[in-house]
Structures are given as structure tokens and as C-alpha cells.
Computed example of a mutant assay.
Amino acid sequence: MTSFSLEGRAALVTGGSRGIGGAIAELFARHGARVAVCHHGDAAGAEELRGRLAPDGLACPATECDVADEASVAAMAAWARQELGQVDILVNCAGIGGDKAFADLSVADWDRMIGVHLRGTFLVTHAFFPDMVQRGYGRVINIASQLAYKGAPGLVHYCAAKAGIVGFTRALSYEGAPHGVTVNAIAPGPVETDLLRGLSPAWREMKQAQLPIGRFGQVDEIAPTALMLASSAGSYYVGQTLSPNGGDVMV
């Protein structure tokens, strides 16, 4: 019998202090996992998350990490092992946004976007994946975007990074699955987060008008997909990218 319980499992969520990552961290904790999160400059958000969980006797330690920086990731990984003992479930959710026409993109803009999303997914996964393979169990869940498939004006760097995450997920799943480690991704549609709110009003208006559902999603509508993939209910998903997107990409 399959179950959505995460009892006995330890989970790490990058970008887990708020937004989609925060919703996933909270849902995991409420389903029995021991959860830790990392963030980049959002100690207040991490404290708010701890405050929501504390009344129910649930803990969620947090630390600072720039996932694009190798030394920062190494320090975070050592901290996570100290807090959790081991990481059974890894959610790569750290991300940044910002729309800019391709002609105006600087090399620094491109490098930072690719660095946080794609390089960060590589660095953090690389820190924990070998241990999962050795133990014969693991769940890696990467947060991509429906824009990896659809594209969008002003977001060439973002779309390229997220498409890279989809390819990374598919390829790594071949190496993990024979050892009990599943690697999957979630490609949300536009969701009410700080990242979306950071885009221009014109872009937001254009995107909302395109959505068949007529509204942006909420973080609580994305987190259950991660719970399914992390639990035994998702044990037959390998190399997949699931896309709760409000109809923005009908595939």
C-alpha cells in the first residue's frame, strides 16, 4: 500500500524559507519528515516558517547558502548532515527572477541566472547524491518551470536555466534509479511568490490573460506534487517533470 507519510525521512529544501520552497518544507514537516532549509538572505522568512511549525512541536532549522557558490554549498551540506544525520529527500527550489529583453541582458545577468538555477541544482545534488546511491535510497526533486517548455519574452536566461534543469533531471534519473534514488522535477505555472511579484506589471498582466484558469497559482497548490514525489506514493516516477500550471502548457 502506498502512503504519503514521510515518517523516518530527513529532507533538505533549498530556497525553503518562503514561496514554493517554504510551502514544501512545511508540508513535509507536517507529514512526518525532519526538515531543514537553506536560504539566501531571508532569515526573517525562515523564522516565520519556524513560527508556523513550532506550535505543533515541529522544528525546521535553517541556514544561509548561496547555491551558486561551491564553498557555500559545501558548508551548507556539512551543516545539513549535522542537523539531519543524512538527507533522504532533496528539493532544489532556490531561484531568482527578473525579466529583461535579450538585447539588454548582460553576461553577469546570464551567469547569475544560470548559476543559481542550473549550477545550484548541480552543486547541491552533487553534495548528496553519492550518499543516497550508497545507502540505496533517495528522492531528488528539482523545481523547474513550465517556461522550460513554453518560453517567454524577456525571460530567455530564466527559460534556458529551467530547461537545463529538465534535462539534468532526465539524465540523472538513469544513474539514480538502479540504486533506489529517484530524480524528478516539478514545472509550476506562474505562482504568487516574490519571484513573480518581482516581474514587471505588464508581464504579469500579459501572463494572467493567457491562463485558461484565469488566475495565478498559490504555493499550496504546488507543494502536494512534491509530497507525492517524496513519498512512497511516487515511487514509480523516474525522470518525470510534473507540471501544475493552470493550463498554461497543455501537454
Score class of each variant (00 low, 15 high):
residue 153 P to G: 10
residue 153 P to R: 14
residue 153 P to T: 13
residue 154 G to D: 04
residue 154 G to K: 09
residue 155 L to Q: 11
residue 155 L to I: 07
residue 155 L to K: 12
residue 156 V to M: 14
residue 156 V to F: 12
residue 157 H to D: 15
residue 157 H to Q: 15
residue 157 H to N: 15
residue 158 Y to D: 13
residue 158 Y to W: 04
residue 159 C to G: 12
residue 159 C to Y: 00
residue 159 C to K: 05
residue 159 C to I: 12
residue 160 A to L: 01
residue 160 A to K: 01
residue 161 A to N: 10
residue 162 K to F: 06
residue 162 K to Q: 06
residue 162 K to W: 00
residue 162 K to D: 00
residue 163 A to V: 04
residue 163 A to H: 00
residue 163 A to D: 01
residue 163 A to L: 07
residue 164 G to M: 05
residue 164 G to T: 11
residue 164 G to K: 08
residue 165 I to K: 03
residue 165 I to H: 10
residue 166 V to R: 00
residue 166 V to N: 08
residue 167 G to L: 03
residue 167 G to W: 00
residue 167 G to N: 04
residue 168 F to C: 05
residue 168 F to D: 07
residue 170 R to F: 02
residue 171 A to D: 10
residue 173 S to Q: 04
residue 173 S to E: 09
residue 174 Y to C: 15
residue 174 Y to R: 15
residue 174 Y to K: 14
residue 174 Y to T: 15
residue 175 E to H: 11
residue 175 E to W: 01
residue 176 G to S: 04
residue 176 G to V: 13
residue 178 P to T: 03
residue 178 P to E: 08
residue 179 H to Y: 13
residue 180 G to S: 09
residue 180 G to N: 08
residue 181 V to Q: 03
residue 181 V to G: 01
residue 182 T to H: 12
residue 182 T to I: 13
residue 182 T to P: 09
residue 183 V to N: 09
residue 183 V to F: 03
residue 183 V to I: 02
residue 183 V to S: 04
residue 183 V to M: 00
residue 184 N to E: 00
residue 184 N to H: 03
residue 184 N to F: 01
residue 184 N to Y: 09
residue 184 N to L: 10
residue 185 A to T: 11
residue 185 A to S: 12
residue 186 I to A: 06
residue 186 I to Y: 06
residue 186 I to V: 13
residue 187 A to H: 04
residue 187 A to C: 13
residue 187 A to E: 09
residue 188 P to A: 08
residue 188 P to C: 03
residue 189 G to Y: 03
residue 189 G to F: 02
residue 190 P to M: 01
residue 190 P to C: 06
residue 191 V to E: 05
residue 191 V to F: 05
residue 191 V to T: 14
residue 191 V to R: 02
residue 191 V to G: 04
residue 191 V to K: 01
residue 192 E to F: 03
residue 193 T to M: 02
residue 194 D to I: 14
